[in-house]
Design a protein around this nucleic acid. Structure first.
Lengths: 335, 335
DNA sequence: CTCAGTCGTTAAAACGTTTCAACATCGAGG
DNA sequence: CCTCGATGTTGAAACGTTTTAACGACTGAG
């Protein structure tokens, strides 16, 4: 089945030594044009495909970086991945995408595998802090959308505390004083930070902490948002929040859907603010107010940092971008 | 920087031969419990990580399959990927995701790379037919969401012609006689098939071919859908279609957005039917009628076929699923 | 007390590349 | 005519595993 034609076969077929074939492959300029042509012809004819394992074993290098993503179904991450890939390609690297799906076992397995594969570097949006430490075993690691706790990695993040603050300040300015924060689990740092930002907004406005109720979810997917919506509607309307700040847009979309299904109006009965400003947010049932993050730039910068990691005088850097509030109909002021 | 501790170091540290260490790694049952413990301890202590390149070089196997996806930003594909990953994991394989982003150069590069990596198998939703043939060079390949032209691969697909027929029949039954088909480029087979299905629906209903106008787009992303919307609105209302069938949900969402922005009502001014029934379709501005495909099953089946590929008496199979129309508000009948 | 059979371990040979030092060949400069 | 440097090419030694056949030490049966 596998003809398994190696460099030696090519060499023999072209009447040269295997070293020359290798040179044609890696340093074409060093070999005489005529010979080069002959070798290339032989490669073509025999359908030779370089065995990357062998190359890597000997050469140590691998031309591949990987991005372990928290949730491949979340457009936010695929957009970041797109940025990563573009930057990687420009530098001659290929990108392997791995989906941890918010599962730390899965994440660990992928990290182990990537490590064994000796990829040149790993980008990761980690499920938990543990994993980041686990990753640090020889392979350069850059944290994406998460700040490095200790200083052992580069990281590229967005100021999530500020993002949360922007969102909730906006709601407060629109007159809301009973606000729900939807998101979880709190073990995810983004969620914690956005929550903290929300609390800060309250403090700035001189509102009591009780003005914000946390509706903790088990994950950050659409379905969880729906569930939160049902819980919200279950509350007696006197105590029910008039606004919800969701830890990401998927939750917000789920919440939206659930509201519509249960006959409540957004923003009249409940104002909603999401996070990430994914493309679908603008196309939602009620166009979604959301906190925008520079997704593409996040990815590109992360890749750039990773690739700079094996420069001689590398120092770990922590880049932090600013989020931006995009106001749409879902949080329009009550009339 | 890299300590690069190898199997030999472990062996020495544990006072055994490297063969024994290898046995501990690969056939733990064959080595005496006491020795095994000692070796494991040494591995732990030295922080040994098996070098996958070397293993693969010698063993020939690789424990990795890859899915080259047409558009990682399209939730349809990430859902399929999820199915693939689950099935792969159950079989002890890891999944690398590669995004061709509808770019045949990119696709080719990834295929080349995966081939060099000697992955155990490749799943692909190809950009063009060429690529599928290119892929066939020793590594098993299964086509996903696309039928194999020649019989050289397994394939898992959904009956796109039927899907198109379902969608347009539905529109015709709702009284529409001027229908637009939005999608492209026609070089993508899914688009062609869905178009063919649409034509068939016309024929079934005894409508002339002119009842369907093709609005060809350059891609299948949200932005293209918006563009198509603008083109549609530009038409004089006497000739403007009253319904649109979009080749996928991203286009439909873009179209929807564009309608709203230009002050037209869906479904009153324009009924819209999408394709794929991604999760966001139900949460859209106007919940989207769409043609549902069994995404998860598509992925799982594809993975299963791929893994069965190196069984001794393998024959290429072509699995075809049935799509299903999900009716929502975007195509509600005019009142 | 011997012999066959287990069991656990090992030395050494792969696997298919890259790389390094050495080797021809040739033209030019002395 | 000899030497030197440049230019192309090559043989052989890695790289870090897995694998195979062989080994010695025991055990239990005869």
């Amino acid at each position: 089945m596998k003809p398994s034609v190696g460099i030696r076969d090519v060499a023999q077929h072209a009447g040269v030594s295997n070293a020359t074939v290798s040179n044609v492959l890696n340093r074409p300029d060093v070999v005489a044009p005529a010979t080069r042509q002959r070798v290339l012809a032989a490669i073509e004819e025999l359908g030779f495909v370089r065995n990357e394992s062998a190359r890597q074993l000997r050469a140590g290098r691998s031309r591949v970086i990987a991005y372990v993503v928290l949730d491949a179904a979340n457009p936010f991450f695929t957009d970041v991945a797109r940025g990563v890939e573009d930057a990687a390609r420009e530098a001659g690297f290929a990108l392997f995408l791995c989906n941890s799906a918010s599962d730390d076992t899965r994440e660990r397995e992928y990290l182990e595998l990537l490590h064994e594969q000796r990829v040149e570097g790993i980008l990761i949006t980690p499920v938990d802090g543990e994993a980041a430490r686990f990753a640090e075993r020889g392979t350069p690691v850059v944290l994406v959308d998460r700040e490095s706790v200790d200083g052992t990695h580069c990281s590229v993040a967005v100021d999530d505390v500020l993002g949360g603050e922007l969102a909730v300040t906006h709601l407060i300015e629109n007159g809301h004083t009973r606000i729900a924060m939807v998101g979880g689990p709190l073990s995810i740092q983004q969620v914690r930070d956005r929550y903290e930002g929300a609390m800060r907004a309250l403090a700035n406005a001189g509102l009591p902490k009780s003005a914000l109720t946390l509706l903790e979810t088990k994950g950050l997917q659409v379905a969880e948002g729906k569930g939160a919506g049902e819980r919200l509607v279950g509350l007696p309307s006197s105590r029910r929040p008039t606004a919800a700040f969701c830890a990401n847009d998927l939750l917000a979309l789920g919440l939206l859907q659930s509201m519509t299904q249960q006959g409540l109006k957004v923003p009249d009965d409940l104002a909603v603010v999401g996070y990430d400003d994914i493309d679908f947010a603008a196309a939602a049932a009620v166009p979604l107010t959301s906190v925008r993050q520079p997704r593409d730039q996040l990815g590109r910068t992360a890749a750039a940092l990773l690739l700079s990691e094996n420069e001689p005088d590398h120092e770990h850097r922590h880049v932090k971008f600013q989020p931006e509030l995009v106001v749409r109909a879902s949080s329009a002021v009550k009339r």
